[in-house]
Every structure is written in C-alpha cells, then in structure tokens.
Design a protein around this nucleic acid. Structure first.
Ligand SMILES: [Zn+2]
Ligand SMILES: [Zn+2]
Ligand SMILES: [Zn+2]
Ligand SMILES: [Zn+2]
Lengths: 144, 144
DNA sequence: GCTTGACCCTGTAGCGGCTACAGGGTGTGT
DNA sequence: ACACACCCTGTAGCCGCTACAGGGTCAAGC
C-alpha cells in the first residue's frame, strides 16, 4: 500500500500521515526499491485508531499512551479510564466556559440594534467600558 | 509608564504586550533615552480594550477591525454587529460539537468500569472498532 | 521515444496567540 | 562594588496539522 492509498483508505491527508511518522506516532513503514513508503494492514489499523481518537479530540501525546495498551494487551487498563476521565473533564470545562461566553456575547450584541455612527454604538461602548474602570454588561455576573 | 507597569495595570504578561506591538495591534510607544518603551494612557486604554475582546475570544484580526471603529467614531457601526454575530455563530457551532463530543466520551467511558487487562478493555475495543470496519458505540447516531 | 500528468520524496515554513528562553544593557538600593 | 530587578532584541517552541518548493518515479497516450 502506497501512502496515497493509505490516505484514501483512512480519509486522511498524505501530509498528515508523514507528520504522524515524523513525530513517532505511526511506525515508519518499509520502503519499496524506489524509496516509496510501503504500508501493511497494521498501519491502516493504527491510523484508524488514531483518527478515531482524534474525532474524540484526544491529544496526540495521549494517543501515544493509548497505543501502548494496544501493543501490550496484558497491561492493566486503569490508566485508560483515567485518561478518558481527564479528557471528559477538559471538554466539560471548555463547555462551561463557552456557555458563559455565549451569554456574554448575547448581552453584548443586544447593546446595538440600530447601527449608527460608531461614536453611538452600544457594543463599542461596552467593549471600551473597562478602559474607564467601569463594569461592563457582559461580565457583570462573575468577573473574568 | 514602563512596560512592566503597563503589564501590571492591564493584567497582561510583558511578552504579550511586545507581541501585540510586533503584530501591529498595539501602536509602538515613544522611547525613553535609555531605549525603554514609554507608554501613555491611550496605550492602557487600547490594551484594556484588546483584553476585553480576548475574554470574549474575539480573534486578534477581528480586534484590529474593531479598533478601526474606535479610531473613527463617525463610521457606520454595522460591521461591528456582523462581527459579533459571526463570533456568536462560531461559539455556538463549537458548543454543538463539544456537546456531541461529551456524549461520545460518556458512552465510551461506560465501556469499562472494572479495569482489567487491556485485552479485555471495552474502551480500547471501541477505539479499535472502526479498524475492523465495525461501527463504534460512540459514533453510532450520526457518523463523524 | 517523448511528453504529460499523477503520484512520491525531503525539507522547511506557516497558522494563532501567546510563552520562554538566551544574551545582553540599565537603573536602583545598600 | 555588587546584587537584583527590570528593560532590550531576537529566536524558538507549543499544537495539529497544512502548504509549499524543488526534486524524483512511473504509467498511459501519441
Ligand atoms: Zn453599533
Ligand atoms: Zn465585559
Ligand atoms: Zn478498561
Ligand atoms: Zn466512535
């Protein structure tokens, strides 16, 4: 299997595959006489595993750790659970902050419904507010 | 005002201020005889504006556009509204995908409650699933 | 045999928004 | 005289790719 074929099979860009090899995530394959990379089924399996993890937004460093369990099936998998829990906590923290952000933007947006000259714009006024030491409407609940 | 004083006043790292100057977001200040940057009140105002926008996760390029309205108070502010709307749409799209992600991780996590050897781990099995062309529990609703 | 085009190779730089140095100069206090 | 905090420039690193530049290889069609 040449790199382009592997890329198609795994729905990944060719450059991404070379990048994974460069950082040591995907093992370097054998080479054909012409120097082309020659992949085996194992590489497709790994790449599919990696991409599956990536759709779950798992970091490449963490995927490396997960792959160690794939390679050593007799190891205790407790670390896997911890890793997923950490990932979940990360996502939930991000969700919380994005929900706050959404509300702040909604409030900010409501400050200008009839676009006029910038000098009168409620949005710009709010964005300038903390400049003057005032509180802003968007961040009134809890600061920062 | 020296850079360290400005940094404290705006709760920003010194390096961040120099970075903003380098990319043209914060105007280069006058220099003292010793070559130190000498900031005026206007710089603190700008920096506060920028940081306020950043807490709303507005991109630096968009902040540049917003600052043009600050500098030209007679301009029509319609573009400001559009910019905030776009920002809100971006945040909401990200929220949607993170909510999906959270559910996928919850399902994945439920596949292993009693850590054992990796060979038996339901989480690792699920992550390997698409390798074998099978559907996975985490992505069963809508693919990708 | 010769050209076209699709593919492959290496190496490097760019994205965003900082952060962290290295290697130097300056200013203040004791 | 010395320490120490601060300032300067310039460069490289973080993440996960993406996009070249500048070359080599191979199969099909003329
Ligand atoms: Zn307005
Ligand atoms: Zn605010
Ligand atoms: Zn397990
Ligand atoms: Zn899945």
């Amino acid at each position: 299997m040449k790199i382009g074929e592997l890329a198609k099979a795994a729905h990944v860009e060719v450059e991404t595959i070379r990048y994974y090899e460069r950082i040591g995530l995907l093992p370097a394959p054998a080479r054909s006489d012409n120097g082309y990379r020659a992949y085996a089924g194992m590489h497709l399996e790994r790449l599919a595993f990696i991409r599956h993890c990536r759709t779950l937004d798992i970091a490449l460093a963490d995927i490396t750790r997960l792959l160690r369990f794939v390679d050593d099936p007799s190891a205790e998998c407790a670390e896997v659970n911890t890793l997923i829990d950490t990932q979940l906590a990360r996502i939930r923290a991000r969700l919380d902050s994005l929900r706050t952000l959404e509300q702040q933007l909604v409030v900010l947006r409501s400050q200008c419904d009839a676009p006029d000259r910038a000098a009168q714009c409620g949005i710009l006024h709010e964005l300038e507010a903390p400049t003057l030491g005032d509180a802003c409407v968007c961040h009134d609940e809890r600061r920062q």
